[in-house]
Amino acid sequence: MKKRAQTLSRMKRQENLIGYLFASPWITGLILLGAFPFLASFYISFTNYNMLSFPRFIGLTNYRILLSSDTIFWRSLGNTFYHVSIAIPLGIVLGVGLALLLNNKVYGMSVYRTMFYLPNVVSIVAMALMWLWLFQPSFGLINEVLSPVYRLLDIEPLRWHQDARLAKFSLILMGLWAVGGPMVIYLAQMQDIPNALYESAEIDGASWVRKTVSITLPLMTPSIFFNFIMGLIGGFQVFTIAYIMTSGGPGRATYYYAYYLFDTMISDQNMGMASAMAWILLVLVLIVTMIALRLNRYVVYLGEES
């Protein structure tokens, strides 16, 4: 009996060993390419490091400077919060709206769904360049369409991304073009809602609005919440569209946090400060996500309790 137990134990160890062996390429990659840079950046955030000489430990100085005497830090953070607080709710509203629209049995619906999803497979650089054309004040399609309105109101054509007051909102509008991604998730969940619920509501005389508000939306809250969290994480890292379309301008109107981090590293050659910024961003995203997860139980339908 004892011998059998030993054999089983040896076999289990062997099996574990083989398992680790198969997983080792991934584990090695995780440690070398993930964990090491992660920990190194944490250490570098406490140093003065210009990428030419060795990092020199300076304690919390980078953090103190960023939080107490760097006005651009707060401005870029403010711009990022503005982007997150408007882009995410708008994205959810539009995504859910589109999903409701495309959840009908109309001829050629799969074509419409594909068309709305297509922008998600377009490179963000190509997308930004296309929107530069659309927003162009002199010959852009948007201002061409709006030209009767401008004439009626006797106002100058809007300068969209070139106007400091409109630039952030222009980039948010542009981002909505890719709302087809979340829409697919909403649509999938919508189609999971049992038809019996709608049939019962119809027997009770519920209208389409009533069914949407009382059945569809509550049952969709898990996917809305999922997209909300993903949007938060992505929103705090907004960079590429501003880098390509506005270079952070006009002025610093679209100078987002990640853009400032990039400039601190590349233009100022201050890797220590940039690492500190990255860690502050991580903590911020964690806090906001944790708050959102706390709200989870109040707003998300998680099924009937037994």
């Binding site: 301008g249 002025g251 400039d263 100022d268």
Partner: peptide, 20 residues
């Protein structure tokens, strides 16, 4: 400020040009 003519000055310059 290694990029004084770019990332540091340019935003203020464009704000002056735009009149903001």
């Amino acid at each position: 400020a290694p990029s004084w003519h770019g990332a540091d000055w340019f935003p203020y310059y464009t704000e002056a040009l735009d009149g903001t």
